[in-house]
Protein backbone atom coordinates (compact mmCIF):
# COMPACT_ATOMS: atom_id res chain seq x y z
CA UNK A 1 0.00 0.00 0.00
CA UNK A 2 1.33 3.40 -0.87
CA UNK A 3 0.80 6.12 1.67
CA UNK A 4 1.87 9.13 -0.38
CA UNK A 5 -0.65 11.15 -2.33
CA UNK A 6 1.07 10.25 -5.64
CA UNK A 7 -0.81 7.99 -8.01
CA UNK A 8 1.27 4.96 -9.08
CA UNK A 9 2.00 4.81 -12.83
CA UNK A 10 0.30 1.89 -14.61
CA UNK A 11 2.73 -1.06 -14.75
CA UNK A 12 3.35 -3.44 -17.66
CA UNK A 13 1.62 -6.74 -16.97
CA UNK A 14 4.32 -9.35 -16.34
CA UNK A 15 4.14 -12.81 -17.92
CA UNK A 16 3.39 -15.85 -15.78
CA UNK A 17 7.01 -16.92 -15.81
CA UNK A 18 8.20 -13.45 -14.79
CA UNK A 19 5.69 -13.38 -11.99
CA UNK A 20 6.86 -16.84 -10.80
CA UNK A 21 10.50 -15.73 -10.77
CA UNK A 22 9.61 -12.45 -9.05
CA UNK A 23 7.66 -14.26 -6.32
CA UNK A 24 10.60 -16.61 -5.69
CA UNK A 25 13.06 -13.72 -5.65
CA UNK A 26 10.92 -11.90 -3.08
CA UNK A 27 10.74 -15.12 -0.98
CA UNK A 28 6.96 -15.08 -1.43
CA UNK A 29 4.90 -18.28 -1.65
CA UNK A 30 3.65 -19.84 -4.87
CA UNK A 31 -0.04 -20.74 -4.61
CA UNK A 32 -1.99 -23.45 -6.47
CA UNK A 33 -3.48 -21.37 -9.28
CA UNK A 34 -0.29 -19.44 -10.05
CA UNK A 35 1.48 -20.23 -13.28
CA UNK A 36 4.56 -22.34 -12.56
CA UNK A 37 7.13 -24.15 -14.68
CA UNK A 38 6.23 -27.77 -15.45
CA UNK A 39 9.44 -29.01 -13.87
CA UNK A 40 8.69 -27.16 -10.61
CA UNK A 41 5.26 -28.74 -10.51
CA UNK A 42 6.65 -32.21 -11.31
CA UNK A 43 9.35 -31.93 -8.64
CA UNK A 44 6.78 -30.94 -6.03
CA UNK A 45 4.41 -33.75 -6.98
CA UNK A 46 7.24 -36.28 -6.75
CA UNK A 47 8.49 -34.97 -3.40
CA UNK A 48 5.09 -34.44 -1.74
CA UNK A 49 3.82 -37.83 -2.95
CA UNK A 50 6.97 -39.57 -1.68
CA UNK A 51 6.49 -37.81 1.61
CA UNK A 52 2.78 -38.75 1.84
CA UNK A 53 3.52 -42.38 0.97
CA UNK A 54 6.19 -42.46 3.70
CA UNK A 55 3.67 -41.36 6.31
CA UNK A 56 1.21 -44.04 5.24
CA UNK A 57 3.75 -46.88 5.00
CA UNK A 58 5.32 -45.63 8.24
CA UNK A 59 2.16 -46.65 10.10
CA UNK A 60 3.06 -50.33 9.60
CA UNK A 61 6.28 -50.74 11.62
CA UNK A 62 4.68 -48.85 14.51
CA UNK A 63 1.28 -50.55 14.36
CA UNK A 64 3.27 -53.78 14.70
CA UNK A 65 3.59 -53.02 18.44
CA UNK A 66 0.14 -51.63 19.31
CA UNK A 67 -1.17 -54.96 20.59
CA UNK A 68 2.02 -55.58 22.57
CA UNK A 69 2.59 -52.14 24.08
CA UNK A 70 3.75 -52.66 27.68
CA UNK A 71 0.96 -50.63 29.31
CA UNK A 72 -2.40 -49.10 28.55
CA UNK A 73 -0.77 -45.66 28.65
CA UNK A 74 1.82 -46.66 26.06
CA UNK A 75 -0.86 -48.29 23.91
CA UNK A 76 -3.08 -45.19 23.89
CA UNK A 77 -0.07 -43.01 23.02
CA UNK A 78 1.06 -45.32 20.22
CA UNK A 79 -2.42 -45.43 18.72
CA UNK A 80 -2.55 -41.62 18.77
CA UNK A 81 0.84 -41.51 17.07
CA UNK A 82 -0.15 -43.96 14.33
CA UNK A 83 -3.35 -41.96 13.79
CA UNK A 84 -1.18 -38.84 13.42
CA UNK A 85 0.85 -40.59 10.70
CA UNK A 86 -2.37 -41.25 8.80
CA UNK A 87 -3.33 -37.59 9.25
CA UNK A 88 0.07 -36.44 7.98
CA UNK A 89 -0.36 -38.61 4.91
CA UNK A 90 -3.76 -37.03 4.29
CA UNK A 91 -2.50 -33.44 4.69
CA UNK A 92 0.20 -34.22 2.17
CA UNK A 93 -2.03 -35.97 -0.38
CA UNK A 94 -4.26 -32.89 -0.08
CA UNK A 95 -1.30 -30.60 -0.78
CA UNK A 96 -0.28 -32.73 -3.79
CA UNK A 97 -3.82 -32.57 -5.17
CA UNK A 98 -3.62 -28.77 -5.36
CA UNK A 99 -1.02 -29.37 -8.11
CA UNK A 100 -3.59 -31.06 -10.33
CA UNK A 101 -2.96 -34.74 -9.58
CA UNK A 102 -5.59 -37.03 -8.09
CA UNK A 103 -5.05 -38.97 -4.89
CA UNK A 104 -6.06 -42.26 -6.48
CA UNK A 105 -3.39 -41.75 -9.16
CA UNK A 106 -0.79 -41.25 -6.44
CA UNK A 107 -1.91 -44.40 -4.64
CA UNK A 108 -1.70 -46.31 -7.94
CA UNK A 109 1.91 -45.11 -8.27
CA UNK A 110 2.70 -46.21 -4.72
CA UNK A 111 1.18 -49.64 -5.32
CA UNK A 112 2.92 -50.05 -8.66
CA UNK A 113 6.25 -49.00 -7.16
CA UNK A 114 6.61 -46.07 -9.57
CA UNK A 115 6.69 -43.60 -6.66
CA UNK A 116 8.82 -44.30 -3.61
CA UNK A 117 8.53 -43.93 0.14
CA UNK A 118 11.32 -43.37 2.66
CA UNK A 119 13.78 -46.28 2.81
CA UNK A 120 13.71 -46.21 6.63
CA UNK A 121 10.35 -47.96 6.79
CA UNK A 122 11.78 -51.07 5.15
CA UNK A 123 13.56 -51.96 8.38
CA UNK A 124 11.75 -54.19 10.91
CA UNK A 125 10.64 -53.23 14.43
CA UNK A 126 11.98 -56.24 16.35
CA UNK A 127 11.47 -55.13 19.97
CA UNK A 128 9.50 -52.55 21.95
CA UNK A 129 12.65 -50.44 22.16
CA UNK A 130 12.41 -49.96 18.39
CA UNK A 131 9.26 -47.91 18.97
CA UNK A 132 11.29 -45.64 21.25
CA UNK A 133 14.11 -45.35 18.72
CA UNK A 134 11.71 -44.60 15.87
CA UNK A 135 10.34 -41.68 17.85
CA UNK A 136 13.74 -40.42 18.96
CA UNK A 137 15.94 -41.00 15.88
CA UNK A 138 13.62 -41.53 12.92
CA UNK A 139 11.15 -38.79 13.87
CA UNK A 140 14.08 -36.65 15.03
CA UNK A 141 15.67 -36.97 11.59
CA UNK A 142 12.31 -36.30 9.96
CA UNK A 143 11.87 -33.11 12.01
CA UNK A 144 15.35 -31.93 11.01
CA UNK A 145 14.35 -32.44 7.37
CA UNK A 146 10.89 -30.96 7.76
CA UNK A 147 11.37 -27.80 9.79
CA UNK A 148 13.01 -26.00 6.82
CA UNK A 149 10.16 -27.24 4.60
CA UNK A 150 7.78 -25.06 6.64
CA UNK A 151 9.34 -22.19 4.62
CA UNK A 152 9.18 -24.06 1.30
CA UNK A 153 8.18 -21.90 -1.67
CA UNK A 154 4.96 -23.83 -2.37
CA UNK A 155 2.24 -22.56 -0.01
CA UNK A 156 0.10 -25.69 0.48
CA UNK A 157 3.17 -27.87 1.13
CA UNK A 158 4.62 -25.34 3.59
CA UNK A 159 1.30 -25.11 5.45
CA UNK A 160 1.00 -28.89 5.70
CA UNK A 161 4.54 -29.03 7.06
CA UNK A 162 3.78 -26.48 9.79
CA UNK A 163 0.98 -28.70 11.02
CA UNK A 164 3.09 -31.84 10.75
CA UNK A 165 6.08 -30.39 12.58
CA UNK A 166 3.93 -29.35 15.53
CA UNK A 167 2.70 -32.92 15.85
CA UNK A 168 6.07 -34.55 15.27
CA UNK A 169 7.53 -32.99 18.39
CA UNK A 170 5.10 -35.11 20.47
CA UNK A 171 6.33 -38.15 18.52
CA UNK A 172 9.97 -37.43 19.23
CA UNK A 173 9.43 -36.79 22.93
CA UNK A 174 7.38 -39.93 23.47
CA UNK A 175 10.15 -41.96 21.82
CA UNK A 176 12.78 -40.32 24.01
CA UNK A 177 10.68 -41.10 27.08
CA UNK A 178 10.36 -44.77 26.11
CA UNK A 179 14.13 -45.05 25.80
CA UNK A 180 14.78 -43.12 29.00
CA UNK A 181 12.49 -45.52 30.87
CA UNK A 182 14.28 -48.54 29.39
CA UNK A 183 17.74 -47.12 30.05
CA UNK A 184 16.84 -46.60 33.72
CA UNK A 185 15.39 -50.10 33.94
CA UNK A 186 16.90 -53.56 34.26
CA UNK A 187 20.08 -54.75 32.56
CA UNK A 188 17.99 -56.52 29.91
CA UNK A 189 15.98 -53.36 29.24
CA UNK A 190 19.18 -51.35 28.84
CA UNK A 191 20.52 -53.95 26.41
CA UNK A 192 17.26 -53.82 24.46
CA UNK A 193 17.50 -50.04 24.15
CA UNK A 194 21.16 -50.21 23.06
CA UNK A 195 20.44 -52.95 20.52
CA UNK A 196 17.68 -50.85 18.94
CA UNK A 197 19.95 -47.79 18.77
CA UNK A 198 22.68 -49.93 17.16
CA UNK A 199 20.32 -51.11 14.43
CA UNK A 200 18.60 -47.77 13.66
CA UNK A 201 21.47 -45.25 13.86
CA UNK A 202 22.88 -45.61 10.34
CA UNK A 203 19.52 -46.07 8.58
CA UNK A 204 18.43 -42.84 10.34
CA UNK A 205 21.51 -41.01 9.02
CA UNK A 206 20.67 -42.36 5.54
CA UNK A 207 17.21 -40.72 5.76
CA UNK A 208 18.83 -37.44 4.69
CA UNK A 209 19.52 -38.99 1.30
CA UNK A 210 22.72 -39.41 -0.66
CA UNK A 211 25.68 -37.09 -0.03
CA UNK A 212 25.53 -33.77 -1.85
CA UNK A 213 27.85 -35.00 -4.63
CA UNK A 214 25.49 -37.89 -5.47
CA UNK A 215 22.18 -36.09 -4.93
CA UNK A 216 20.16 -35.88 -8.13
CA UNK A 217 17.60 -33.19 -7.36
CA UNK A 218 19.44 -30.95 -4.91
CA UNK A 219 20.47 -27.90 -6.93
CA UNK A 220 17.22 -27.42 -8.78
CA UNK A 221 15.19 -27.76 -5.58
CA UNK A 222 17.42 -25.22 -3.84
CA UNK A 223 16.98 -22.71 -6.68
CA UNK A 224 13.21 -23.08 -6.45
CA UNK A 225 13.14 -22.62 -2.68
CA UNK A 226 11.81 -26.15 -2.16
CA UNK A 227 14.92 -27.30 -0.34
CA UNK A 228 16.63 -24.76 1.92
CA UNK A 229 19.60 -26.87 3.09
CA UNK A 230 21.60 -29.65 1.47
CA UNK A 231 21.40 -33.31 2.55
CA UNK A 232 24.82 -33.14 4.18
CA UNK A 233 24.04 -29.92 6.06
CA UNK A 234 20.87 -31.46 7.51
CA UNK A 235 22.64 -34.71 8.38
CA UNK A 236 25.32 -32.77 10.27
CA UNK A 237 22.67 -30.77 12.09
CA UNK A 238 20.93 -34.00 13.14
CA UNK A 239 24.16 -35.54 14.48
CA UNK A 240 24.97 -32.35 16.39
CA UNK A 241 21.55 -32.38 18.07
CA UNK A 242 21.44 -36.11 18.73
CA UNK A 243 24.89 -36.86 20.19
CA UNK A 244 24.28 -34.93 23.45
CA UNK A 245 20.81 -36.50 23.76
CA UNK A 246 22.42 -39.97 23.59
CA UNK A 247 24.59 -39.06 26.58
CA UNK A 248 21.51 -38.08 28.61
CA UNK A 249 19.84 -41.34 27.61
CA UNK A 250 22.94 -43.32 28.56
CA UNK A 251 23.03 -45.10 25.18
CA UNK A 252 26.07 -45.33 22.92
CA UNK A 253 25.78 -44.29 19.27
CA UNK A 254 27.45 -47.10 17.31
CA UNK A 255 30.19 -44.97 15.74
CA UNK A 256 33.72 -45.08 17.18
CA UNK A 257 34.62 -42.02 15.11
CA UNK A 258 31.87 -39.88 16.65
CA UNK A 259 33.59 -37.00 18.49
CA UNK A 260 33.17 -33.27 18.98
CA UNK A 261 35.52 -31.34 16.72
CA UNK A 262 36.07 -27.86 18.21
CA UNK A 263 37.88 -26.79 15.04
CA UNK A 264 34.74 -27.33 12.94
CA UNK A 265 32.31 -26.62 15.76
CA UNK A 266 30.54 -29.84 14.79
CA UNK A 267 30.64 -33.53 15.62
CA UNK A 268 32.75 -35.70 13.33
CA UNK A 269 30.96 -38.92 12.41
CA UNK A 270 31.04 -41.89 10.05
CA UNK A 271 28.81 -41.61 6.99
CA UNK A 272 26.12 -44.27 6.52
CA UNK A 273 26.55 -46.90 3.81
CA UNK A 274 24.96 -45.18 0.81
CA UNK A 275 25.16 -48.33 -1.30
CA UNK A 276 22.86 -49.93 1.26
CA UNK A 277 20.55 -46.90 1.00
CA UNK A 278 20.25 -47.30 -2.78
CA UNK A 279 19.79 -51.06 -2.40
CA UNK A 280 16.91 -50.57 0.06
CA UNK A 281 15.29 -47.85 -2.08
CA UNK A 282 15.37 -50.25 -5.05
CA UNK A 283 13.52 -52.91 -3.05
CA UNK A 284 16.33 -54.83 -1.36
CA UNK A 285 15.53 -53.93 2.26
CA UNK A 286 14.40 -56.48 4.82
CA UNK A 287 10.71 -55.49 4.71
CA UNK A 288 10.03 -53.92 1.28
CA UNK A 289 7.93 -56.82 0.03
CA UNK A 290 5.93 -57.13 3.25
CA UNK A 291 5.18 -53.39 3.45
CA UNK A 292 3.93 -53.24 -0.15
CA UNK A 293 1.95 -56.47 0.06
CA UNK A 294 0.16 -55.25 3.19
CA UNK A 295 -0.56 -51.79 1.71
CA UNK A 296 -1.97 -53.18 -1.53
CA UNK A 297 -4.04 -55.77 0.34
CA UNK A 298 -5.46 -53.14 2.72
CA UNK A 299 -6.41 -50.97 -0.24
CA UNK A 300 -8.04 -53.86 -2.07
CA UNK A 301 -9.83 -55.13 1.04
CA UNK A 302 -11.21 -51.64 1.65
CA UNK A 303 -12.56 -51.20 -1.88
CA UNK A 304 -16.06 -52.44 -1.01
CA UNK A 305 -16.29 -49.98 1.88
CA UNK A 306 -15.42 -47.06 -0.38
CA UNK A 307 -17.92 -48.22 -2.98
CA UNK A 308 -20.64 -48.81 -0.39
CA UNK A 309 -20.14 -45.34 1.09
CA UNK A 310 -20.58 -43.79 -2.36
CA UNK A 311 -23.70 -45.88 -2.98
CA UNK A 312 -25.09 -44.82 0.40
CA UNK A 313 -24.38 -41.17 -0.39
CA UNK A 314 -26.08 -41.50 -3.81
CA UNK A 315 -29.13 -43.12 -2.24
CA UNK A 316 -29.52 -40.37 0.34
CA UNK A 317 -28.81 -37.46 -2.01
CA UNK A 318 -31.98 -35.52 -2.53
CA UNK A 319 -33.49 -36.36 0.81
CA UNK A 320 -30.96 -34.58 2.99
CA UNK A 321 -32.59 -32.16 5.36
CA UNK A 322 -34.16 -31.80 8.76
CA UNK A 323 -36.63 -34.61 8.05
CA UNK A 324 -34.19 -37.09 6.56
CA UNK A 325 -34.36 -40.48 8.26
CA UNK A 326 -30.79 -41.46 8.91
CA UNK A 327 -28.64 -42.63 11.80
CA UNK A 328 -26.45 -39.59 11.11
CA UNK A 329 -29.28 -37.08 10.94
CA UNK A 330 -27.50 -34.60 13.21
CA UNK A 331 -24.47 -34.44 11.02
CA UNK A 332 -26.54 -34.27 7.85
CA UNK A 333 -28.70 -31.49 9.18
CA UNK A 334 -25.71 -29.43 10.24
CA UNK A 335 -24.06 -30.04 6.89
CA UNK A 336 -27.16 -29.28 4.85
CA UNK A 337 -27.90 -25.87 6.37
CA UNK A 338 -26.11 -22.68 5.50
CA UNK A 339 -23.02 -22.48 7.70
CA UNK A 340 -24.00 -19.17 9.20
CA UNK A 341 -27.75 -19.54 8.94
CA UNK A 342 -28.38 -17.28 11.90
CA UNK A 343 -26.38 -14.46 10.35
CA UNK A 344 -27.49 -14.73 6.75
CA UNK A 345 -31.17 -15.66 7.10
Amino acid sequence: MTTSGELAPPAERPTGEERFEALLAADERIEPRDEMPGAYRATLVRQIAQHAHSEIIGMQPEANWITRAPSLRRKAILMAKVQDEAGHGLYLYGAAETLGVRRDELLDHLHAGTQKYSSIFNYPTLTWADIGVIGWLVDGAAITNQVPLCRCSYGPYARAMVRICKEESFHQRQGFEILLTLSRGTERQREMAQDAVDRWWYPSLAMFGPPDGRSTHGEESAAWGIKRFSNDELRQRFVDMTAPQAEILGVRLPDPALAWNPGRDHYDFTEPDYDELFRVIKGGGPCNAQRMERRVRAHRDGAWVRTAALAHAAKHRGRIGPDAESPTTDGLRAAAGSPEEGVRA
Binding site: G87, S326, A335
Partner: peptide, 17 residues
Protein backbone atom coordinates in the same frame (compact mmCIF):
# COMPACT_ATOMS: atom_id res chain seq x y z
CA UNK B 1 -7.08 -28.06 3.99
CA UNK B 2 -9.03 -30.59 2.02
CA UNK B 3 -10.13 -34.19 2.22
CA UNK B 4 -12.13 -36.86 0.40
CA UNK B 5 -15.49 -38.08 1.67
CA UNK B 6 -18.55 -39.72 0.12
CA UNK B 7 -21.02 -37.17 1.52
CA UNK B 8 -21.29 -34.07 3.70
CA UNK B 9 -21.85 -35.95 6.95
CA UNK B 10 -18.76 -38.10 6.45
CA UNK B 11 -16.80 -35.07 5.31
CA UNK B 12 -17.57 -33.41 8.66
CA UNK B 13 -16.55 -36.48 10.62
CA UNK B 14 -13.37 -36.94 8.62
CA UNK B 15 -12.57 -33.25 8.99
CA UNK B 16 -12.91 -33.59 12.75
CA UNK B 17 -10.45 -36.51 12.74
Amino acid sequence: GSLHAPDAAMALRNARD
